[in-house]
């Protein structure tokens, strides 16, 4: 199959996202103008960063499949680097960590050559066996369990899980005639991010009952349920334009994305709380670090991918 441009529906969807950004930016600046005594710097920073993210994402997705794969490989690399800079690591493990970085390139190479089985097993089997071996050769046993456990969890989150977003682009077009793999990717990423935003807005406006106060004090049941409702509704409405999903499947995937997105979010929150930091970094002004932005995707991407493959691409991937 030769890859040219994504399907027209992908462009329409990107157009709608840009329209939403325009409207939101206008609203934020209008509200800030009406209430000059209140501070909207954080919100303005956040929307500015959204512009940068969406523009980069749109360019990578529409330019070529290779550019999209490079974009996601770089995202995995940034996320892994942020993770390894955040957690305690051992001096002795420098060379092991180097292999972990190499694994990012190798994993995206499997994706690029469409070797499905290798993509599935490379991190959970081969890296799982190789990294501890490399660590053992170094001979440092003090803190071995912590070091290898932390490294493997980070690899699974930032390389294996995120890689599923990229693999959507390798799915055969015939399985999703309305928008292809790029359509599925856009559907997943859009719903995951909308779910984050919807949970935030519902929680801010009518949140009363805390859902996981020890992990994330700002999360409420009202925010969670409002997010699930909004995301599921969007999932059903958007499905015919971007996916091959029947309405019942779209409903299920809406519930899955909104719930899993929440779990991904609080999982990274638990990590940050354990390490005693507020944000995972400061690379994205107004948002925090890379991990703060992609936390939900680490859960939604593999679940969405395997749901889709099970129902619509069974037997076509080898």
């Amino acid at each position: 199959m030769t890859w040219t441009l994504p399907a027209p529906n992908v462009f329409w969807a990107l157009g709608v996202i840009f329209l939403l950004l325009f409207v939101t930016t206008f609203l934020i600046y209008a509200v800030a103008f009406k209430n000059p005594d209140k501070n909207y710097t954080e919100l303005k920073l956040r929307i500015k960063s959204w512009w940068v993210i969406v523009v980069l994402f749109a360019i990578a997705l529409t330019l070529s499949r290779t550019s999209a794969l490079v974009f996601f490989a770089f995202l995995s690399f940034l996320a892994l680097k942020e993770y390894l800079s955040l957690i305690p690591t051992r001096r002795a493990d420098r060379r092991v960590l180097f292999w972990a970085y190499l694994a990012v390139i190798i994993q995206y190479y499997w994706i690029a050559i469409n070797w499905y089985v290798m993509f599935l097993i490379f991190v959970p089997v081969y890296m799982f066996l190789f990294l501890p071996m490399r660590m053992v050769i170094l001979g440092e046993t003090q803190g071995f369990l912590k070091a290898i456990g932390a490294l493997h969890w980070g690899m699974m989150l930032t390389v294996f899980s995120l890689g599923h977003i990229a693999y959507l682009l390798m799915l055969p077009f015939s399985g999703n005639p309305v928008a292809g793999g790029a359509g599925l990717l856009l559907y997943l990423v859009f719903l995951t991010e909308i779910n984050d935003i919807a949970q935030y807005i519902w929680g801010k406006s009518c949140g009363r009952h805390k859902v996981l106060p020890q992990v994330s004090p700002n999360k409420t049941w009202e925010g969670l349920l409002g997010g699930i409702l909004t995301t599921t509704l969007m999932a059903v409405l958007l499905a015919p334009w971007l996916t091959p999903f029947q309405p019942l499947h779209a409903l299920a995937i809406g519930l899955l994305i909104s719930w899993a997105g929440f779990i991904g979010d609080v999982t990274i929150s638990a990590l940050k709380r354990d390490l005693g930091v507020k944000d995972s970094g400061n690379l994205i002004p107004g948002h925090g670090g890379i991990l703060d932005r992609i936390d939900s995707l680490t859960y939604t991407a593999p679940l969405f991918f395997h749901f889709t493959v099970y129902f619509y691409f069974q037997g076509v991937l080898t």
Binding site: F77, K81, E82, L84, S85, R94, R95, F98, Y101
Partner: peptide, 18 residues
């Protein structure tokens, strides 16, 4: 902070850290 982790004295292999 961090560069001593990326490329400490006596090492030639650069390992990325922020």
């Amino acid at each position: 902070h961090g560069l001593g982790k990326s490329l400490p004295k006596g090492e030639i292999l650069l390992v990325p850290f922020f």
